[in-house]
Design a protein around this nucleic acid. Sequence first.
DNA 1: GTAGAAGTTGACACCGGTGTCAGGTTCAAG
DNA 2: CTTGAACCTGACACCGGTGTCAACTTCTAC
Lengths: 130, 130
Amino acid sequence: MRVGELAERTGVSERSLRYYEKQGLLTAERTPGGHREFGDWAVDRVIRIQALYAAGLNSTKIATLLPCMRDADGGPSARATERLVAELAQERERIDRLIADLLRSRDVLDEVLEMAAQPRPAATAPASAV
Amino acid sequence: MRVGELAERTGVSERSLRYYEKQGLLTAERTPGGHREFGDWAVDRVIRIQALYAAGLNSTKIATLLPCMRDADGGPSARATERLVAELAQERERIDRLIADLLRSRDVLDEVLEMAAQPRPAATAPASAV
DNA sequence: GTAGAAGTTGACACCGGTGTCAGGTTCAAG
DNA sequence: CTTGAACCTGACACCGGTGTCAACTTCTAC
């Protein structure tokens, strides 16, 4: 498939897909005319890339990380260095903390939404009816 | 307490605390000489602010949101407008998706970390000795 | 062959919370 | 009063994935 289709299937802009390729996160065959040609496996990969970006990893780290994981086509093509392992462990902790923050924030939003959903706030004073 | 202590107690830089105040996220009394004086409630508030930032809300939205929630000193001082409610509902969905991405990314990291923890991959590369 | 959709590269801009430096003021302890 | 730590304001820079525009080429269907 070509960028347009990949963009549509992943929900990621063409701009970003080209950027991913340039960063070495994604590989694409080329037609004789220079158009990118992606395999089906690209869909999963892009989704993973997006998730990693969402988790706060930058393209360099993702590029280092990706070849160390099981791919659609079998085993990993690289082994994580010690340094990378240390970094990833750190990232993992950060992600855990981030998840905690997100849950907390969601609760905050829920509280506001819930209060807004109630017919009447009554007053600033401690309400009688709950 | 003053910024230094608040920074220490929350793990947030003084720079950020001053910025929060400027954005209207945080209020502070002032000493005659102009130094900020925070109450104990500021600690919780800063932590909440951080969580909301981590969740991807910008300062404007946080500033609009904060007065609509229960504070340490009782009920909310403002009621969410319809527009805000709509926005927050949207943010909530985004946060849910983000959490899903984070969990997925954490799994990815775990997979790589686990594989790296194993004594031998015994496959792609004919490793000699480690 | 031809037109229009789709693709290509390159460049510029943005966002916005945070780090950091500079130069000056205030606070509090001796 | 003095002195050093802590604080104040203001300004500059950054990061880096993404949006967007421009100018041009390739693909595909008729």
